[in-house]
Amino acid sequence: MNYVFEKEMNREISDRTIIDNFAEEFCRVVGRHIKYIVVSGYVAIAHGIGRGTIDVDMIIEKMRERDFAKMHEELVGEGFECLQSSKADDIYEYLIAGDSVRYIRIGEDLPEMEVKFVKDEIDELQMRTRKKFPFTGLDVWFSSIEFNVAFKEGYLKTPKDMEDAKHLRIIYKDELDELLIEDIKKMIKRLRLEDEG
């Protein structure tokens, strides 16, 4: 019996989703080794938006290869595997080249954690201002709501992203720093959109 179904069948009464458990368990291991943030769609999903996903996006601080190898070994020991390779040095090459790598539960295809290194000052600032949100009931570090709203409204802009931004704006209405959102949008324009032409 695979991990997800086993967990579902043996669970106590819980409202946690499969992806909540997956994300929290992965973050618990990574958090023992390096600073991380969870970004993008799962932030809105963790705040209750009514749509699903099969992946979670994570940014981690850059680390030395031997430190990454230790973290990878622990992830494997906790039941995760990397789709790109089983070898830590191969995986590290992807990360250091700026590519993302994908981890899943061993023997299962879904869900997946997409991991990449911090790539610019926007990511560094997201990392410095990371937050845990009691609203979600999850022990996970997320990028701030202001960053998520700014990215979704000012960079990604798909209908799904605009809905995510609207949802987060309603959940945190009266709490959001609108000036900060505008500053982040300017930073995104300068560092991401102009670079992409």
Partner: peptide, 15 residues
């Protein structure tokens, strides 16, 4: 969460 769970888990389980 209990309302959201069925929707989100269904996507994973069906996949």
């Amino acid at each position: 969460k209990s309302k959201q769970k069925s929707l989100i888990d269904a996507q994973i389980i069906i996949g």
